[in-house]
Design a binder for these strands. Structure first.
Lengths: 199, 199
DNA sequence: CCAGGAATGGACTGCTTGGTCCAGTGAGGG
DNA sequence: CCCTCACTGGACCAAGCAGTCCATTCCTGG
């Protein structure tokens, strides 16, 4: 599976993945062919198959991995340091800023919906991203509990799930309606909710 | 644009739309061709173009309209009667039941992501659905305020947006991860949040 | 400096698929 | 009864696209 790559080869491969990701964000995966990627990245057909022997599916998987990684790194460092209420707010602003800027598709949902949902490799990528993201959020909720900033009766997992759902849903609706308010409102509510006393 | 349709013709057209919708739910829009639809609905190529003169795009739009309508009607009558807290809970159960049953794709996000996001007709369909859905939810939140079941300081629009985002995000994550807990947790939190006293 | 494998260019192929065309069939209104 | 027009069947076409192949160039270690 793994081939020997020189530094130059690795650079070309990376250029292909990033160029393909860019095109897919702009036009959607259905409207991007290998020839488009070839033209956009100044490569030739044989290079595409040299670096991705299994063809388009192989390349799309690499793009999915790249985008999944981007989703997390775009939110760093805030996502990894949710230790105080103020830092949660900073993360919230960061998330809104990211999605406001890219508008287009949340790569996560775009790729999930469009690559075969049944494909186990795709599932693995998405599951990994979801778990990692949930983990960061849960750690942050727990930190607020530990420091006494929120009610100790708060259910950590459920709260983390609710917050992630808010981001995901807000991003989906942003993409559908081009209105940012869903994401803003959903995040505001989900975060405020965390601080309200339990009954 | 509008052609004369006999009763028989209308039935055939409807059979095509429903069959196409079914196939798309199962396999995703990228993996459904006109020949698949033709085979699955026991029709011929010429019928497809007879009822949808502009071809595949035309048919896909009809499917989108059909699915958007389904999203609302599936939630009736509960969605239209959110006048007490118990009825909100009944709606919540209904939503979870629907998505648990269909698992596959939320037709909304599936179609949104895959048809051209830029296409104004698609946007119109999705916007209409979103607005209608938000409207039902906002009416329900207002009803609880009017009856005194929730704090009068609750922001109706923001709450409605947060709840819709919770459903959308929960559905997206269900589709991605095949786990129902995101939707359950997000809805539980969003609804509980509505009842908590404001500060 | 020279082999040998990595990297690149681009022509070519075969299949899939959206879309066209025309020849028939059938049912309802005059 | 029959004439018209909606309806149906399916062969056929052309374009787009993933994937193949081979010739050529580049780079690096020995």
């Amino acid at each position: 599976m793994e081939r020997v790559l020189t530094a130059k080869g690795a650079a070309t491969r990376q250029r292909i993945v990033e160029g393909a990701a860019q095109l897919i964000r702009e036009r959607g995966v259905a409207n991007v062919g290998l020839d488009d990627i070839r033209a956009s990245t100044a490569t030739s057909k044989s290079q595409l198959f040299h670096y991705f022997p299994d063809g388009k599916a192989d390349l799309m998987l690499a793009v999915a991995r790249y985008e999944a990684e981007q989703v997390i790194t775009d939110q760093l460092p805030q996502l990894a340091d949710l230790t105080t209420w103020r830092k949660w707010q900073a993360w919230r602003r960061r998330v809104i800023q990211i999605y406001d800027a890219q508008r287009a598709a949340c790569p996560l949902s775009a790729l999930t919906a469009q690559l075969g949902k049944a494909d186990p490799t795709t599932r693995e990528i998405v599951d990994g991203l979801t778990d990692e993201w949930t983990g960061y959020l849960a750690t942050g909720v727990q930190a607020l509990k530990d420091s006494g900033e929120i009610d100790p009766r708060v259910d950590v997992t459920r709260t983390a799930h609710a917050i992630l759902s808010a981001v995901s849903g807000g991003a989906t609706l942003l993409q559908s309606t081009n209105r940012l308010s869903y994401l803003e409102d959903a995040l505001t509510e989900a975060l405020d909710n965390m601080r309200r006393p339990r009954s």
